[in-house]
Each structure stands twice: as structure tokens, then as C-alpha cells.
Design a protein around this nucleic acid. Structure first.
Lengths: 233, 233
DNA sequence: CAAACCAATCTGGTTAACCAATTTTTTAAC
DNA sequence: GTTAAAAAATTGGTTAACCAGATTGGTTTG
């Protein structure tokens, strides 16, 4: 068997190919929810790929809740019905790499929600953590040092205070992608220190006062320039 | 070396342990962004776990943009700074399994946005797909058949029409978890067919007319009972 | 005839061996 | 002494071999 090292994109394409083949297999063999798929070894032989690739693909479909593999037993079609399964698989195959605009749009959406929820639900402990992040941000800015990290941590501290593990998880997912794209496109504005400090302070105060409406408004102000950039205003 | 099969939870705990050890290693050795981590073999020996576990954990941290591994070269600390890295790792370690309430809360947030964006951006092709999903939903309901899948596909079709790959990805992530929890908690309401059809039809019409405000309002109505359930009203 | 048991087989999970590209060290030439 | 070339060691990626639990079919036993 030939051995070659694949790039990330090749990998993704290979996974998509296998996903499509698994979908066709399920449809052609009329496999119902709960039915067992052929073993990993048989699939790897039939699809002419390594067993490792089959495993990785199955794990991906497991992540999206389409398959369910049981140790020492087999891999099974999940209980979501064939129609839904086909729809979801088509969606997965059509998934594009996230563009910067969609990332920013999503970040704004999530953060306008997290800040409201944080204002409503924050514990005193949460508040202390947010304040600590705010203070280290201030210190960096006032010393004219780069404060991108501290900025980020302030926002993540708010996300943690929103007490919604799903939103929190999504914030974590997009954060590194945002950072990379910020660096790539040089969106970070320089020499806006005092203005940014005030915006952060306003957000913190609103959370402290548990004023959800004000918190949202202050976050909106904070995102104003990013918003304009995103929508090319 | 001992061989044992771990459950999903054990796996996650093991990964978290290794993540914490990698974090401590980076901090103790004062590794800067861009520096190279010890090799996978050395890490597995030092942490007394298998190399496979180390690889899986590194992949997880790569997913969150904290590490970056280069083939035949090594694994490197990403360019996000030590402060941000520590903050993000702490967030990752604190991530809880998603509870049902957070899932519903997030779904409502995402869908109120997708429906607005879909109303604004939908192409004619998108519209046709949404209508097709609506029609098969109607048909099932009118025949008194179970239509959970068709319901789901209608919502996913809207998500695809919103032209935001990041939001679309997140919808795909939470959808199976929503389904599982719906089944677990039996939230699905029965014998509400005609009402649900009208709600779906209203949403579709608003998207067709590209009336963003109406689309959002109709979606809110559609989520009304779920909303009440979520907030225990 | 049915139920219980047992061994052969099959399964996904795990580990160890291997590969090729890279990096580092050694060596040779100038 | 410096530099360039070559060889050895190191790396993440990949494959193949192995493991223990689950399944299955046939056999035995009540």
C-alpha cells in the first residue's frame, strides 16, 4: 500500500468523499436507523482507503450525531431518520470554510447575547474575574503595550459569566479563527487606547449593575467599528 | 503497557489532564509563541500516557488554535500570546457538557438571526429548497405521520439560506444534540399539526417577501412554547 | 423442544512498528 | 577557520499487528 502525507485540505476532501460513500451505502442498502454499518475493515476495503481514514470519518459523523459506534460491537445509524440524515449530510458536505465576514457577524451576534446574559446571571465571582481582566487590559494599554490578548480575555470572561455552556463553547471555537483573521487582515486599530478603555469600562459597569439593556448597548458601541467594517459601511 | 478501553467521559477527563500538563509545561519552561514543544514521544513518556492520547489532545488544542503542528518538524505554540493561551485553556478545561436549556437558548438565538439573514439574502434557489422542505413537512403532517425530520430540514434549509457558513456550522453542531434531548425529555408536542403548518407557512412567506422583521416575528411565535418551556414560564 | 452454555469469530479500541520529510550533527574540502 | 555537503538522528504521519469485549452459531443439557 502506498503511503503519502496529505495536507489539511486533502484530508477534508477525502473525508467528504468517504462521507458521501457512506451516505450512498446507507441509502442503497436501505439501512434504517439503528441498523449496523459494515465493519471498519470492510468499509476501508470497499472504499479503497485506509482504516484510519474510515475511523476519522466515522468520528466526524459521530460528532454531528449521524452515526454511533459501540466498542467491540459495531457502528450504527443514529435514530434521526433517513430523510433528516440525508439532509444533514448534504449540509455537512456543503459546509464552506468560514469567511471573515461570517466570523465577525457571528461574533457580534454571540457577544450581544452573552453580555445580556452575563448582566443578568453573573455571580460575584464572575464579576471579579471580569474586573481582573479589565484591570490588566487597562494596565497594558496605559503602558502603551500591545493588549490584544487582554482584550480577548475580557470578552471570554464575559462569555463565561453568561452561564450558557453552548454559547461559551461556540465563542471558544470562533475565537482563534477571529484572531488569525485579525492578524491576517490587520483590522486591529492602533492608538485608540483611551476610547477602548472607556468602552470596556462601560460594559463592565453595566454588567455590575445588572442592567441588561445598557450592557447590550455598550457592547454595540464597542463593536461599532467592527460592524461598519463587516458591512462595508 | 496496560491496555484498557475508556468511555467517552474517561477520554475527556484524560484529555483535560494532558491539556493541563501541557499548559504547565509551557508555563514552567517559559515557552514563547512560536517555540517548539517536546516531541509527541517525549510527552507521552513524561506524562505516562500513550502517544495516541497525546496526539488526540494536541489535535484538540489545534482545533482551538492554541497549538500548531508541522509534519516531520514538531508541534509549536501558536501566535496568540501566553496570557491569552492560559485564559483559553482554562476556559476549555472549564467547559461543561451542554445542558438542554443552554441548547434551546442557543438555538433560539441562532435561528432568530438565520431567519432574518435568510429573508435578506436568500436566492431563488434557496427559496425553492425551503419551499420543498415546507411541502414535504405539510404532506407528512396532513397524513398524520411523524414529521420531526421534515420539521428539522425546514429549519436547516433556512440556515443554509442565511449565507453565513459559521452560523450554519453551529446549527449543524447543536441540531443532533437538540434532537437527542427532545427525544429524551419528550418535549415534542403532538396534535398541533395545523398550527405548526401555519407557523411554518408564515415564516416561509416572510422569507419569500424578504420581510426581515416579519420573518423574525413569525419565528418568535414558532418558538413561543419552546421558549416558555426553556424559561419555565 | 427449549434454554443454557461454550468456543470460534468479529468488532472497535489500542499499541507498536514503520515511513518519509526535516533537522541536526558530523565530516570533508577549501 | 569557514563553509558546504553528507550522514545520522528526530519528527509527525501512517500503517499493520494486537487486544479484550461482544456477538453468533452450534452443541449440550435439562
Amino acid at each position: 500500500m502506498k503511503l503519502e502525507i496529505l495536507t489539511k485540505n486533502d484530508h477534508q476532501q477525502l473525508h467528504n468523499d468517504i462521507i458521501a460513500k457512506i451516505r450512498d451505502l446507507i441509502n442503497n442498502k436501505n439501512l434504517e436507523p439503528g441498523d449496523k454499518l459494515p465493519s471498519e475493515r470492510m468499509l476501508s476495503e470497499r472504499f479503497e482507503v485506509s482504516r484510519g481514514n474510515v475511523r476519522e470519518t466515522i468520528q466526524k459523523l459521530e460528532f454531528y450525531g449521524i452515526l454511533k459506534s459501540k466498542p467491540q460491537s459495531g457502528t450504527f445509524v443514529a435514530d434521526i431518520g433517513r430523510v433528516a440524515m440525508n439532509g444533514m449530510i448534504d449540509d455537512i458536505l456543503a459546509l464552506e470554510d468560514p469567511d471573515f465576514k461570517s466570523l465577525v457577524e457571528t461574533r457580534i451576534l454571540l457577544e450581544l447575547k452573552t453580555v445580556r446574559l452575563a448582566a443578568k446571571r453573573r455571580t460575584n465571582d464572575d464579576l471579579e474575574k471580569i474586573e481582573a481582566a479589565l484591570e490588566s487590559y487597562k494596565e497594558k494599554v496605559l503602558n502603551n503595550e500591545d493588549a490584544v490578548q487582554e482584550d480577548l480575555l475580557f470578552h471570554l470572561a464575559i462569555a463565561q459569566a453568561c452561564r450558557n455552556s453552548t454559547i461559551n463553547r461556540m465563542m471558544l471555537i470562533i475565537t482563534p479563527e477571529i484572531i488569525n483573521n485579525f492578524e491576517k487582515y490587520h483590522v486591529c486599530d492602533k492608538n485608540q487606547g483611551p476610547k477602548r478603555i472607556k468602552e470596556h469600562q462601560d460594559i463592565f459597569n453595566a454588567i455590575k449593575e445588572q442592567n441588561t439593556q445598557k450592557a447590550k448597548e455598550m457592547m454595540k458601541v464597542h463593536f461599532n467599528e467592527l460592524y461598519k467594517y463587516c458591512y462595508n459601511i
